[in-house]
């Protein structure tokens, strides 16, 4: 077991399902015998605000929150949120961005601009960036709402946690009627990231 703590930062917009993703990853880390801490945001921010879930696992974990410049991986359910939390990524860390744009209120009302090509600019700054259309992939698996599980698949591949364990966690946490779609979504996400890594 590596002594070093692994820091996973999952960001998005309230309502996108970041909580389920962090809980699946955390559950897997528990099953693997790690000390685990997860920090979540409940309450007001869930109403369409910027949300963050932090998962930390390793031999011994103290703080439930990740320091700036200390995240091994940043998983963003939305492009702008990737940029907002980018300073939390450690040098050499990985970024996975869901190719989804959700305009915040000041942009919707035309007061501020949604930064142009924000995902590509992140990719220029961070060499290990993967951009994916998880919503479309989930649609192809049978339900666009499984986009968060596509992202779980990519995350699992990126931080090298065993697929079998993740699938067990999904079985525990997802209702039976949605299970098949979710397992498929997970495998597609995993395949996608592995294929991307092979290209590099």
């Amino acid at each position: 077991m590596p002594k070093q703590t692994t820091n996973v930062l999952i960001v998005g917009v309230g309502g996108q399902g970041t909580l389920l993703t962090s809980r699946i990853i955390a559950q897997v880390a528990v099953q693997m015998g790690y000390d685990v801490k997860v920090s979540e945001i409940h309450g007001m921010a869930q109403r369409g605000g910027s949300v963050v879930s932090q998962v930390r696992y390793g031999e011994k974990v103290y703080s439930p929150i990740i320091k700036k410049s200390d995240a091994d991986i940043l998983l963003a359910f939305e492009k702008l949120e990737a940029a907002r939390w980018l300073d939390y990524l450690k040098p050499g860390g990985k970024v996975i961005i869901n190719d989804e744009r959700v305009d915040p209120l000041p942009v919707m009302s035309g007061k501020l601009k949604y930064p142009v090509d924000i995902d590509k600019r992140i990719a220029n700054l961070i060499p290990d960036t993967t951009i994916v259309d998880a919503t479309r992939m989930a649609e192809e698996c049978g339900n666009s709402r499984a986009a968060n599980v596509v992202l779980v698949g990519m995350l699992a591949a990126a931080i090298n946690i065993p697929a079998e364990e993740v699938e067990n966690a999904i079985r525990e946490m997802v209702p039976a009627k949605a299970l098949e779609v979710n397992l498929k979504a997970f495998r597609e996400g995993q395949k996608y990231l592995s294929a991307t890594l092979n290209r590099l």
Binding site: V13, G14, M44, A45, Q46, R47, G48, G49, S50, K68, S69, L80, E81, A83, R84, L86, D87, P104, L105, P106, V107, L112, K113, Y114, P115, I118, R121, I122, L125
Partner: peptide, 19 residues
């Protein structure tokens, strides 16, 4: 705090809002 990405200047805030 270590050097930032420099992107933060142009990131619009995302306050919570009514559904």
């Amino acid at each position: 705090s270590r050097k930032g990405s420099g992107l933060d200047q142009e990131i619009p805030p995302r306050p919570p809002l009514m559904c």
